[in-house]
Amino acid sequence: MQVQVRLFATLRQGRFKRQSLELPEGDSVADLLKSLDIPKEDVGMLLLNGRDAALEAPLTTEAVVSIFPALGGG
């Protein structure tokens, strides 16, 4: 399945800004992190189609995953 992945801030370093990735059916968000070599503890915010998602959330075709380190401001 095709999944759109968007990385932000420090997570872009050595990786990419946004990419469409081909993943095996049934993969979860945690599987995606593993394939990107992003340690769980580096993730501050995880969105699946713009809504907060758990690591075990299953991915679906055309899903948009946005991954941030811990951030704030305002």
């Binding site: 968007r6 932000f8 801030a9 420090t10 501050g44 915010m45 969105l47 713009g50 946005s66 941030f68 380190p69 811990a70 951030l71 704030g72 401001g73 305002g74």
Partner: peptide
């Protein structure tokens, strides 16, 4: 703290642009 020790020093408050946009 990740926000005051890392996020804000690295990107300033402007780091929120993508955070808030991705939430729609």
């Amino acid at each position: 703290h990740d926000v005051t020790g890392k996020g804000l020093p690295a990107y300033g408050t402007a780091v929120l642009v993508n955070v808030i946009n991705e939430h729609g």
